[in-house]
């Protein structure tokens, strides 16, 4: 998938403002960004639902606009608004979609099982829980075994357990060599799954790299914390290698750029029991890059 200098405006609003990126076959690519950053518009242009004002898009070697039926057979899209056929059961919905792709009912049953919804086959789509709807939406996107998969916030309404199951499912898809483009608000998810992520803000890409490189580029301090009674802030500031110390939520937090040295020194002072270390995460990188940083 190749995007070159793509622009799209709605009236005065520049939803997508000069985006260029390249996603390789077999890659697990994340698009992160706050609401209104232009993620959805970008994906709608890539799948051919909207025409870019300017710039070129090539998906699997062809242009998606205008509607290209041959291309549509090779891509699968899951959207946030779960679109299901009215008043049908889960399996009836999937069988209808299967038929629209020219597939038999076995494709629907397989997709249902893959999403772990076999037990809910006979439940009406309007009676499914939020998480079940989300999984049915993913099953709908995967029914025709697409090569390129777009997932828009696939785990938004899922509880942690189901979320992890879905991660396994997504990893398996990638293992089959399929390309996945994934938008999410869950930074831990992007960190755990994506080969590379693009961070969008205000219709532009503000960073594009692997999660590891983005975090390293932050050059953020490591934080050590101990329960507040064990060490005073004053003493903590004097610890070897610690740049800054403060108290927060019942813990004394020490910021350091030399975590090894500081940890040894803290160990000598209080013992290492209950000492927690926290390094920068993709979330820190994200907050800094999107300019929505709330903490120092």
């Amino acid at each position: 998938m190749l995007i070159e200098d793509v622009h799209k405006a709605y009236g005065q609003v520049r939803a997508v403002d000069g985006v260029s990126l390249r996603v390789e076959q077999g890659e697990f690519f994340g698009i992160l960004g706050p609401n209104g950053a232009g993620k959805t518009t970008l994906i709608e242009m890539v799948e051919g639902l909207r025409e870019p004002d300017r710039g070129t898009i090539a998906v699997l070697g062809t242009t998606p606009w205008p509607r290209d039926v041959a291309l549509l057979r090779r891509i699968g899209v899951q959207t946030q608004a779960s679109a299901f056929f009215t008043r049908l059961t889960a399996v009836e919905h999937l069988r209808t979609v299967a038929e629209l792709y020219g597939l038999g009912p076995d494709a629907a049953d397989r997709s249902l099982a893959q999403a772990g919804l076999t037990e809910k086959a006979g439940t009406r789509v309007d009676k499914l829980s939020g998480g079940q709807r989300q999984r049915l939406a993913i099953a709908t996107a995967l029914i025709h075994r697409p090569e390129l998969i777009f997932l828009d916030e696939p785990t938004a309404a899922l509880d942690p357990e189901v979320r992890r199951t879905l991660w396994d499912m997504l990893r398996a898809l990638r293992g089959e060599g399929r390309t996945i483009i994934h938008t999410t608000h869950h930074l831990d998810e992007a960190e755990a799954l994506c080969d590379r992520v693009a961070i969008m803000a205000g219709g532009r890409i503000v960073a594009l790299d692997s999660p590891g490189n983005l975090i390293r580029a932050l050059d953020a301090p490591t934080r050590l914390s101990v329960p507040a009674g064990r060490l005073s802030v004053h003493k903590a500031e004097a610890v070897d290698g610690v740049a800054r110390a403060y108290e927060e939520a019942g813990e004394v937090v020490m910021e350091t750029r030399e975590p090894g040295r500081a940890l040894v020194a803290v160990g000598e002072l209080t013992g290492l029991d209950q000492v927690r270390t926290r390094t920068a995460t993709l979330e820190d990188a994200y907050l800094r890059l999107t300019g929505s940083e709330h903490t120092a």
């Binding site: 549509l72 299901f84 979609v97 709908t140």
Partner: peptide, 17 residues
């Protein structure tokens, strides 16, 4: 109206229908 509002038309659009 429903099919458009609930994105069912979009779902159909994405298939070769």
């Amino acid at each position: 109206m429903h099919w458009r509002r609930d994105d069912i038309l979009r779902l159909i659009w994405r298939t070769p229908t």
